[in-house]
């Protein structure tokens, strides 16, 4: 006869949908920023058309993201405490300064891009890369520092977050390039230039998806082998209540289907690539929700 829980008090999840959305938007921001620097920062001129839309997206997404944090915290008027009573050991403290520096750098870099100042854009773009990486990776550290939550407590979390940030950012830039071209030309058709940009972005996206799938597989397999609470947490995603969202939504629709479209030349029509990109963005949103919500699903006591 298995033991029966007769009484305990309900526990409310600490992080929920607002935190998942915050992570999703900072991811989009970091991803778009990295793509935006390819041209000025690394001299890849075929991505020149992405520089301005990339940095504008990065800035807008980062302006949106903290709104979800303000929705989440109980005392939003006290957020200035983060800068005056800071605890250097808390990843949230790292984040509060990153969230201050990164938009400033985005603005400067964007200004240099608009002015066509190649040297300033190159310097600011390269300087922004570690900031963009940190501004997203720190959200992974927030979760991975919760040692008692088996699904979050993994050294892969910041890396996984970064890879999915680049995936969602690249997919968003594909959609944005097409949308900008159509708005400019006032018809639903893509010019040769845009097609070429989208094609090379599609190659990047395909490889990032491969890395994302490999990292996710590493995490899932190691988690299952760990047994105990860790395996129990991973099984929530594989055959528990998150099965449909994780396997069906996040993995199949959000990663494998887009990867098939991007990798097989026969499927890689312009329309299919755009649809695949939309799926990737939706899949990464689902991934943020899965990780944040499933992480606190199992009560600890």
């Amino acid at each position: 006869m298995s033991p029966t829980l007769l009484y305990t008090v309900p526990h409310h999840a600490s992080f929920g949908v607002p935190i998942a959305l915050y992570i999703f938007f900072t991811g989009l921001s970091a991803g778009s920023f990295l793509l935006s620097t390819l041209s000025y920062g690394f001299g890849m001129d075929r991505y020149r058309a992405l520089s301005l839309p990339g940095i504008v997206t990065a800035f807008v997404m980062l302006a949106v993201a903290p709104i979800f944090l303000l929705v989440h915290v109980g005392q939003p008027l006290r957020v200035w405490h983060l800068f005056f009573f800071l605890n250097p050991r808390s990843p949230i403290t790292w984040g509060s300064f990153l969230l201050l520096l990164y938009p400033v750098l985005c603005l400067l870099y964007g200004y240099a891009t608009v002015q066509g100042d190649v040297r300033a854009a190159r310097g600011l773009g390269l300087a922004g890369i570690p900031l963009a990486i940190s501004v997203h990776a720190y959200t992974g550290f927030i979760l991975s520092f919760c040692a008692c939550r088996p699904l979050w407590h993994t050294a892969l979390m910041p890396v996984l977050f970064l890879v999915s940030a680049v995936a969602s950012g690249t997919a968003l830039m594909i959609l944005l390039s097409a949308a900008l071209e159509c708005t400019r030309a006032r018809r639903i058709a893509l010019g040769v230039e845009t097609k070429r940009t989208i094609d090379s972005l599609a190659v990047i996206l395909a490889w990032v998806l491969v890395v994302d799938i490999v990292l996710t597989a590493c995490e899932v397999l190691t988690g299952l082998a760990a047994g105990g609470h860790k395996a129990e947490a991973v099984r929530l995603l594989l055959d528990g209540p998150f099965r449909l969202a994780f396997l069906g939504g996040e993995m199949v629709l959000g990663k494998f289907v887009p990867l098939a479209v991007l990798a097989v030349p026969r499927f890689r029509t312009a329309g299919a690539v755009l649809a695949a990109s939309a799926l990737v963005v939706a899949g990464i949103l689902l991934m943020r929700l899965d990780i944040v919500v499933a992480g606190e699903y199992i009560p600890l006591l």
């Binding site: 005392q75 006290r78 808390s90 520092f145």
Partner: peptide
């Protein structure tokens, strides 16, 4: 001082 970010609550085993 508490801003209600609930990080402590998430990290408490």
């Amino acid at each position: 001082r508490c801003i209600g970010c609930q990080y402590c609550k998430a990290a408490c085993p």
